[in-house]
């Protein structure tokens, strides 16, 4: 079967620093796949290789069966990229931007004119269409960028941190637009550092850290892999958090770690009763607790759990 996006052992170094060290991906047609990871994990570099912007040092990648290096022109006809920093010409108006990109995709001038008007209208930029993009707000730029991304009706769309820096309202609107794209059959690869975003949108998530995809699965599968819930305890300053981590490990077999603030202990717990037991133990030892909470795992928790199970030191 031909995947919409397929990568095997992709590698890329910059001046001796290995940014991507062996990324494997297999994304089906029509899927919305989120590449999730912290800053500097290799998300953007991976995306640049998949979109022909960067030549890989090693490994292979195919978009709808076309090699991103040997058949770059073919790949460019099938994809579109929408960036973290909206890739627009700030000295042109929104309408001029869309017409230019439409022309470069192969639309005739007449088609480009109609298309630009339609897109401006449907992305809520009808009134702003004849202002230069330099005067647009962050949300308006992302919307125009997305409009430019879909005008060629690409088979595969790459969205590089599309909502970073947006206000909640704009973020929700952008999510809505992305959902519609997928509904129409576009394959979407989205990078993000927000678990919530991946959770809301993605069919599947690939967790990327230190240049490798360390886990892949549906949001439910990934969250389950951390052990279900996270118990967060804030201690009074007098208590040694490492003591508590050891106590949890010895008494309950819990994997716990402390935050850098030195007073917070987090433990992955499979079920609520384990959390009760852990709190109970603290009570027995008369440990001073400021407060505690049981919650769904956050990105940090998933990240910690995954890096911990692959036998690596958590970097924080």
């Amino acid at each position: 079967m031909t995947y919409a996006i397929e990568a095997k052992g992709l590698r890329k170094s910059f001046r001796g620093h290995e940014a991507v060290r062996g990324v494997d991906l297999a994304i089906r047609q029509g899927e919305l796949f989120a590449l999730l990871g912290p800053n500097g994990a290799g998300k953007t570099t991976t995306l640049h290789m998949l979109t022909t912007l960067l030549r890989p040092d090693g490994g292979t990648a195919y978009i709808c069966g076309s090699d991103v290096v040997a058949e770059a022109a073919d790949v460019r006809r099938r994809i579109s990229v929408t960036g973290q920093y909206a890739a627009l010409d700030e000295s042109l108006t929104g309408r001029q931007n869309l017409r230019l990109f439409a022309g470069l995709h192969g639309f005739s001038h007449k088609e480009a004119v109609v298309l630009a008007s339609e897109l401006l209208e449907s992305f809520g930029l009808g009134d702003a269409g004849d202002r230069t993009v330099g005067t647009y707000s962050g949300g308006m730029r992302r919307r125009l960028d997305l409009a430019a991304g879909i005008l060629s009706q690409p088979e595969v769309m790459f969205l590089d941190e599309p909502t970073t820096g947006l206000d909640p309202q704009s973020r929700r609107e952008l999510w809505e637009a992305i959902r519609l794209l997928v509904k129409k059959g576009t394959t979407v690869l989205l990078t993000t550092q927000y678990l919530e975003e991946a959770d809301q949108l993605a069919d599947r998530i690939g967790f990327i850290a230190d240049g490798r995809v360390i886990a892949t699965g549906t949001p439910e599968q990934l969250k389950a892999s951390t052990g279900g819930k996270t118990l967060t305890i804030r201690l009074s300053a007098a208590t040694d958090p490492y003591e508590i981590c050891r106590l949890f490990a010895d008494e309950h077999g819990l994997s716990a770690h402390t935050d850098e603030d030195g007073v917070t202990v987090k433990a992955a717990v499979r079920e609520a009763s384990l959390a009760h037991a852990a709190i109970g133990t603290l009570m027995e030892h008369q440990t001073a607790i400021k407060d505690f909470a049981l919650s769904d795992p956050s990105l940090d928790d998933v990240f910690f759990a995954l890096t911990a199970t692959t036998g690596k030191e958590a970097t924080r």
Binding site: G103, L104, E118, E121, S122, G124, E176
Partner: peptide, 29 residues
């Protein structure tokens, strides 16, 4: 924003050749 499905069934034609693309960039300038 609500209706990007609009009325668009159009796909782009052939990729533009060197002259067409140069013309588009001239227009941009």
């Amino acid at each position: 924003m609500s209706s990007i499905q609009a009325s668009r069934a159009r796909k782009p034609g052939q990729s533009p050749g060197g002259l067409t693309a140069t013309g588009l960039f001239m227009r941009r300038t």
